[in-house]
Measured scan of single mutants.
Amino acid sequence: TFELKGKVGKVVKIAEDHYLVEVEGDKWIAYSDEKLSLGDRVMVVDVDGLKLKAKRIP
């Protein structure tokens, strides 16, 4: 999973306390310091076990 750092994905679902992000065809649980919206493009900035930390990108 460490190779996911720096990869770009898309928010495909918003849950109460996390997001579901699709990166290279796989879906991952993600969290972010900022509020994300459905369809936002994100970059993986860190990997915490099986969770990704994501940041919105333009």
Rank of each mutant, 00 (worst) to 15 (best):
I57G: 02
G39N: 13
S37R: 11
K55N: 08
I29H: 13
A54S: 03
A54H: 01
Y19A: 06
G25E: 07
T1D: 15
S32A: 15
E34V: 05
V45L: 06
F2K: 15
A15P: 03
L50G: 08
D17R: 09
I14G: 03
L20V: 10
L38M: 10
E3C: 06
K10I: 12
L4W: 03
K27D: 11
S37H: 13
E16I: 11
E24C: 15
L52A: 02
W28I: 03
V45H: 03
G39R: 06
W28K: 02
K53W: 10
I57F: 10
L38R: 07
P58W: 10
K27H: 10
D17Q: 10
V45E: 08
S37M: 12
D40W: 05
P58L: 09
G25A: 07
G9T: 01
V45I: 13
K13P: 00
L38C: 11
I14R: 06
A30I: 04
H18L: 12
F2S: 15
E22V: 12
H18Q: 11
G39E: 12
D26V: 13
R41Y: 14
K5G: 09
A54P: 01
K35I: 13
E24Q: 07
D33R: 05
V23E: 01
M43Q: 11
L36M: 08
V11C: 09
D33T: 06
L38S: 05
K7Q: 07
G49W: 03
S32L: 03
Y19C: 07
W28S: 02
I14A: 11
I57Y: 11
A15R: 13
G9M: 05
V23K: 01
L36C: 09
W28R: 03
V44C: 04
D17M: 09
K51H: 08
L52Y: 02
K7S: 06
M43I: 13
V47G: 05
P58K: 06
T1M: 15
V45M: 07
E34S: 07
H18T: 09
D48F: 11
E34D: 15
D48I: 14
V8T: 14
D17F: 10
I57L: 13
D33K: 05
G49L: 03
K10C: 13
D46A: 06
K10A: 14
Y31C: 14
I29R: 09
K51T: 13
V44N: 01
Y19W: 06
V42E: 00
A30E: 01
D33C: 07
V21L: 11
V42N: 00
S32K: 04
D40Y: 03
G6D: 08
L36V: 04
F2D: 15
Y19S: 03
R41D: 14
V44R: 00
P58Y: 11
V21N: 00
V21K: 00
M43K: 07
A15N: 13
V44K: 00
V45T: 09
G9W: 01
Y31K: 08
L36T: 01
R41E: 14
K53D: 04
K35Y: 10
F2V: 15
L20N: 05
L4F: 03
S32E: 01
